[in-house]
Design a protein around this nucleic acid. Structure first.
Lengths: 117, 117
DNA sequence: CTGATATATCCGCTTATCCGAATATATGGA
DNA sequence: TCCATATATTCGGATAAGCGGATATATCAG
């Protein structure tokens, strides 16, 4: 069984999104649907260990889900997110879109596109 | 002129709400509309200086507005909040309501109710 | 002016958090 | 098996953030 029980609270969500890197990662996943770690590394322009660490936190809060495809691990917003959380993310991502337009231009393309599970 | 220009970004909002005390304060204000500092102090069960410091941060992000009435300063959610931010707060407060039911029972009543400005 | 109450700010301290190089683990191919 | 690539985790150090007592400011009453 997974260690992450699906009990996401508003406080947990806010704390996770309180870090700008994690917020940006969520933005990217919201925009592109699914990205592998190397995509996120290049889009965020941060060391791999930093990105991976933040992804681990997002995983721990069950904000994202991961799927391994060969060497690559693809992340996406957790499809089992509570409705309220999904709505909050929608609002935030929409509002943040223009302020992060540059971020969106440098994602996707590092690894072979895999069919959705 | 006020030091706080009304340019609230999703990152700023998330960072503010990332602290649990500030999130709770916002919960209380969302629920009760307007509260003075002493109400918040008693509801949050924290030292006055702590509460005041957090309120200052919320003010700086223009998440709340304050109104002095004699000795008391009444805080409320900033009515000029961008729509997206108001919607995010609505979602969060609704979702957090039951988990913070106890919090809601110990607010209001410390200072004379003043007519809305 | 003096004292009481309410709130804001200051300050040193403690703790949480983030960082990124180094290292460990997992996978695929030769 | 050995190597290359992708990702995760560890670890020590730097920084930010929160804490709350003490103090400053503001308002009101006498």
């Amino acid at each position: 069984m997974p260690a992450t029980s699906l009990s996401l609270t508003p406080a947990m969500l806010c704390k996770c999104l309180g870090d700008e890197t994690r917020l940006r990662a969520m933005l990217l996943l919201h925009r592109f649907g699914e990205l592998c770690v190397c995509d996120l590394v290049s889009a965020l322009a941060l060391p791999q260990s930093t990105v991976s660490r933040h992804l681990a936190q997002l995983r721990q809060c069950s904000l994202v889900s991961d799927r391994r495809a060969g060497q690559w691990v693809h992340y996406r917003l957790n499809p089992a997110l509570p409705d309220w959380a999904a709505r909050v993310l929608d609002e935030l991502c929409l509002a943040a879109a223009d302020a992060n337009a540059d971020l969106m231009t440098r994602a996707e393309g590092c690894c072979p596109v895999a069919a959705t599970a």
